[in-house]
Design a protein around this nucleic acid. Structure first.
Length: 423
DNA sequence: TCTGGGGTCCTAGGACCC
DNA sequence: TCTGGGGTCCTAGGACCC
């Protein structure tokens, strides 16, 4: 017999980036706010007031300029240092409520509430919500159910319907059909644009409609992933809680230029810069990478000549050395760079990632391997203590005028002494 | 003028092997 | 003038997530 399902909670910050901006600026109460992607290109977060004005997620800023002007929408560049710090405050706070927590994204966490079955779960959720509000200043919504997908669904309803005061528990309900009927299939976790189109074509509109479909049909059209989603909606857990984050299998670092460039030197600097970031992440999780991919592309939204290309290179032995990676990346750029194009974006990806065991290969490898390890360690330490990019490879440049634009950034209120909130 | 960045998993199909 | 069957590994592409 199946083990009895225990309650799972999903805690999710409302309009996270927009709410973070609001915490430190009282003038932003009840005002429409949007937060922009890197390069200030498109809208990636909106306060409720901005949503009400019809501003859509992912819309380019220039398309809503009129609305912004007319209604005095407050516009911010994204400030990841601030959001990252606010996120860890929220997570610390949530952790007080359950020892078993999976941090799912910057603004969401699943909690295992095993052993809490006999408590009043609504009240527990309400307490959690009030505590985050008080300690960190951010509004959160909470859904509690038997599976992750149902917790997501409950959370979604809690966020939309003010009647629930931000907390909806459907764990005890024997009959959750009413809840499944009020959620559109496109709002189900795991069902995106393509599957929504497919399902709508078959006249499936709600989460409830979806789970009436036969397993074979679902599996055939939506792979095992779709079937898993259906099972979860039927209250059968298929997706477990991962309290220890798995090491990354791929590490990507890339960014759009502030303006297009056809200059090979710029491109090379940018690539070296991205390699440095990726390699640091790799060392942080104590892994080595066997494969480096370098890619570049022109702006696909422009009419100008298009070119995009990438090259995959294998290291003789898996490595975590920035300098070794840079030298390969430079060779890669030489291979794929073409004169005469306006490049918009370059980047690198590390793959073939395995746990690090630095000493393992020394016998078979270049004698300078140990030296490289020492250099990496020292550089990481200096940058950690004295600030990012205190020390870096010359190849990564110093001017970096190709760097991303962020003209509308709020101060780093919580992490930088010079930008503390003045009272 | 102006459209992000960083991940995951699954499947089909090709290369290759015996 | 006929052309198996079964297995593994890898990659590209497509779907999804935030």
């Amino acid at each position: 017999m199946r083990q009895k399902e225990h309650p799972i909670a999903l805690v999710d910050c409302n309009n996270f980036y927009a709410s973070c901006e609001r915490v430190f600026n009282t003038k932003l109460r009840n005002v429409p706010i949007v937060v922009l992607s890197n390069n200030d290109g498109m809208i990636i977060a909106r306060s409720n007031e901005a949503k009400a004005l019809g501003i859509k997620m992912g819309e380019p800023l220039f398309k809503v300029k009129d609305i912004v002007k007319k209604y005095g929408v407050q516009v911010y560049s994204s400030n990841y240092v601030l959001y990252g710090d606010m996120s860890s405050r929220v997570m610390n706070c949530i952790s007080q409520f359950s020892p078993d927590i999976e941090i799912y994204s910057i603004d969401e966490a699943f909690l295992n509430l095993k052993g809490f079955e006999n408590r009043n779960l609504e009240q527990y959720g309400a307490e959690l919500r009030a505590t985050v509000r008080q300690w960190v200043g951010l509004p959160v919504s909470i859904g509690i159910a038997k599976t992750k997908t149902l917790a997501k669904l409950a959370n979604h309803i809690a966020k939309k319907d003010p009647k629930f005061n931000g907390v909806l528990n459907i764990y005890y309900e024997d009959d959750i059909d009413e809840f499944l009927k009020r959620v559109e299939v496109s709002d189900v976790w795991g069902i995106g644009r393509q599957y929504t189109k497919l399902l709508n074509n078959h006249n499936i509109r709600s989460a409830y409609d979806f789970i009436q479909l036969g397993d074979n049909w679902i599996k055939k059209k939506m792979t095992i992933m779709g079937l898993r989603t259906a099972m979860e909606l039927r209250g059968i857990p298929c997706i477990s809680l991962e309290s220890v984050p798995a090491p990354k299998k791929a590490i990507v670092s890339s960014r759009s230029f502030s303006k297009l460039s056809s200059n090979k030197q710029d491109i090379k600097e940018a690539v070296a810069f991205f390699v440095s970031i990726a390699a640091q992440k790799l060392r942080k999780q104590r892994s080595n990478a066997g494969i480096l991919t370098v890619f570049l592309r022109t702006n696909p939204f422009k009419d100008s000549p298009q070119y995009h290309n990438g090259v995959l290179m294998q290291f003789p032995l898996p490595t975590d050395s920035t300098s070794e990676m840079i030298s390969y990346a430079m060779k890669g750029i030489e291979q794929i760079f073409r004169e005469g194009y306006q490049y918009q974006k370059v980047g690198v990806m590390l793959a073939g990632i395995i746990p690090r065991n630095r000493n393992q290969y020394i016998l078979f490898d270049r004698p300078d391997r140990e030296q490289m390890d020492k250099i990496s360690d020292i550089m990481d330490k200096i940058n950690k203590e004295m600030g990012a990019w205190t020390i870096s490879y010359a190849a990564a440049g110093t001017k970096r005028d190709w760097m991303t634009r962020a003209d509308l950034k709020s101060p780093r209120y919580t992490t930088n002494w010079n930008e503390l909130l003045k009272v």
